[in-house]
Design a protein around this nucleic acid. Structure first.
Lengths: 366, 366
DNA sequence: TACTTCATTGAATCCTTAC
DNA sequence: TGTAAGGATTCAATGAAGT
């Protein structure tokens, strides 16, 4: 048995040729930010599944063998998932994709291992292959699972960017995207499709844009012809690809080589407000934008509070922060004082958040 | 231990009160044509959740949904699935529904027991509850599994009826249907919803219409307030309902009693209006038709904006949607960005609406 | 009556940082 | 580790109330 040598230098932006479990064994613990895994679906095993002794798993087509088939598939799934989990950073997350042939099993093992499911996401194919025999519903979707390494992991989620990508409404758990075809579909030398299940770049675009920051490292243990790497390069993310098939490795390397990496300025996305620097309300008073003794109003002008020199306010018999008093006067469990309270300027009410924005802008100029 | 007495007469069109496993034990082998099961999802909710307007979300906090950890839930799942399988005819099929909390486990056990998955079907909710805290994708769907008792079972599938229901094109594995609300939603005496997870009749309509013939017997072991029975009666199918909660049993009996059987015409109201699908500008970026960093021009070429990876654009000192920035650079109150903005292709300017049309065309090709 | 506005609500594993 | 505090966060449908 081969002894894995753990490297200290990550093979960034490389396509590694070999068995994904063995190669992941050479990577250190807690080292990648995201994993995207598109494992074999246990449909056409295509020689990609092997038993621990390296004998090939034969295709099976009766009930008894089918259950045996699940056993083999389950072993295979646990194998790569365990290594993937070890390599993943504590605040990292994993995406995997599959169909009803395999996704229930992958999802169950994920949960049993302690991964924390954040969403299951449906890729609705706008142009799926029909069911030619008319015996079932058109199999028009695949299922992705987005899961954190732990329940407590602080994963990356670019909420505002997703909302922006969806014309200003919250992105849903079902994504309608066309399958990979046309010029995007890689062809082999004989003009036929190079890979049977090449994923569309639009799918990876959404995965990487939503759950990574530029510069973060994405590991794809079933790299195929390198869609993950191609999109990572376009979006300024780093990747590590692992692929067992030598032809695919060659194709993927050529494909990624030909892509000009996205420049940083074009990769700016809508930032979430949570990531902006925190401004205490006292700074607004200190800056003279509001004076001690000034009155704050709610949007309707019916509730009021009085500003004090230290940035606390008094209203409804309470004294405290703008948030605490805002919550108190409404009898609400919480309140964002920045948007709740207003000041009167030129006869109209203006949210005090405008003043915070002014201070933030001044900080930018410095 | 209680000894189950197996009856030879099926309790057709009855709502049985009790534990579903114990009651199924009184039913003979191979006796029902279809099973529809909506088991507890075992949601593990934290504390209270409030909407941005500070109103409290009325969550599912019923005892019956708290099964325990994965181990207990798995035992529970195996228990009802085994009995369900025994009671099912050899050519019968089972539907079950769930979310990512439980569906992977149910699906895995189904497969392990020898059920043969025919489709997983996605119920896309047209009006789901949003993710109020902006921490994940809107959980906008639930997953159904349709599985035959055996791989070789000759199950009922009304292909033509489904095609007709879908305006003459093959029914897909994703179904867009609204959640249960309005007059259909059963209310308790206090005017609040009687059951936290009542399913829409449109969903059961599609399930029963697609996979049963009139006169066949449908068993629902988690009957709740009886949606399965109500739709079965409307569609001329027979049902057996089992429900552990006495209040739900009473409500279900009243509900079904009030339905005139075979009155299917009342259900023909869910026909979908076909309007042009809304395409967010972000889809054009994801599809690679425009790249992050590309420049948009107005028709005269004098105003420009720069495209970002999340589908927002920057121009005239503003960042936002194509519509917002289009309005800003003109100093106009509003703007249709699809017709205002152009891209340069082969030396000429072309409205970006052309790219939207291209995406719509791909979606139509299905 | 027609239209607008506002309040309500739905299977939800729903915050983050500093002390 | 827990606690306290700042402050970020919603879409579609229904129905009642107001104009």
């Amino acid at each position: 048995m081969r002894v894995a040598l753990v490297s200290t230098v990550l093979p960034i932006n490389q396509v590694l040729h070999g068995n994904c479990v063995e190669i992941m064994q050479t990577l250190p613990d807690n080292s990648v930010d995201l994993i995207f895994a598109d494992p074999p679906y246990n449909l056409q095993l295509g020689g990609e599944l092997h038993r621990p002794d390296n004998s090939r798993v034969d295709a099976v087509d009766n009930d008894w063998d089918q259950i045996g088939g699940f056993d083999e598939y389950d072993l295979f799934t646990c194998g790569w998932l365990e290594e993937a989990r070890r390599v993943l950073k504590e605040d990292g997350a994993l995406w995997t994709i599959g169909s009803y042939h395999n996704i229930f099993r992958v999802g169950t093992f994920l949960q049993d291992m302690g991964f924390w499911v954040l969403n299951d996401v449906i890729w609705r194919k706008s142009n799926p292959m029909p069911n030619f025999k008319g015996t079932r519903f058109t199999n028009a979707h695949e299922t992705l699972i987005w899961a954190a390494k732990h329940k407590t992991s602080k994963v990356t989620f670019n909420y505002a960017a997703m909302k922006s990508l969806n014309d200003g409404v919250q992105m849903r758990s079902d994504w309608t995207l066309p399958i990979c075809s046309g010029g995007e579909r890689l062809k082999a030398g004989d003009g036929r499709k190079a890979h049977p299940t090449q994923k569309p770049e639009s799918l990876l675009h959404r995965v990487l844009l939503s759950t990574t920051h530029p510069g973060q490292i994405v590991l794809d243990p079933f790299f195929g012809t390198g869609t993950t790497g191609a999109v990572a390069r376009k979006l300024g993310r780093k990747f590590i690809g692992i692929e067992a098939d030598a032809d695919y490795v060659t194709l993927a390397r050529q494909r990624i080589e030909a892509i000009s990496p996205g420049d940083a300025s074009a990769l700016q996305v809508t930032a979430s407000k949570r990531s902006l620097p925190r401004i205490p309300f006292g700074n607004v008073v200190e800056a003279g934008l509001i004076k001690p003794g000034d009155t704050l109003f709610c949007a309707q002008g019916r509730r009021t509070a009085r500003v004090r020199a230290d940035g606390s306010v008094t209203g409804g018999g309470e004294t405290g922060s703008i948030h605490q008093v805002g919550a108190a006067v409404q009898g609400a469990p919480s309140c964002n004082g920045w948007t709740f309270w207003h000041i009167r300027r030129n006869g109209t009410l203006m949210p005090i958040d405008v003043l915070r924005s002014r201070i933030r802008a001044e900080m930018e100029e410095a």
